[in-house]
């Protein structure tokens, strides 16, 4: 990425949403437990390819990469994840309603 041509730097900034802060916290804490490292995060991010940088936000890429590492470490299975995501989605239409099981 360093040195490749690119357009102007967009200087907009935003306050982090709660779900983004939680993703950040999960990464730091999983790193502390030794489940995976920041190198594991970065590998998963780079495996996503160029398109992910165009279509996903920063913490969207992070949660995808964290999940990839947790699946690989066997912390939970893809079936468990799928079932839980379906259950979460049924709780309500907004993050506020779905966030607590």
């Amino acid at each position: 990425m360093g040195g490749t041509p690119a357009g102007p730097v967009c200087q907009d900034d935003h306050d982090f949403a709660l779900w983004e802060k939680r993703v950040d916290a999960l990464m730091v804490l999983c790193g502390n437990t030794g489940l995976f490292t920041v190198d594991g995060l970065r590998r998963a991010l780079e495996d996503m390819g160029e398109e992910a940088f165009e279509t996903m936000s920063y913490y969207e890429r992070w949660i995808a990469a964290i999940n990839q590492n947790l699946l690989e470490s066997g912390t939970y299975s893809i079936e468990e994840l799928g079932a839980r995501m379906e259950e979460v989605a049924r709780r309500g239409p907004t993050y506020g309603e779905a966030q607590d099981g």
């Binding site: 939680r22 949660i63 995808a64 912390t75 468990e80 979460v88 993050y95 966030q99």
Partner: peptide
Amino acid sequence: RKDDDHPLTYWQTMEIAVRELL
């Protein structure tokens, strides 16, 4: 709150699920 009043996204759903499983 901005994160609470928008339709739940796929990746937010994943964050909730991953956090609960952990």
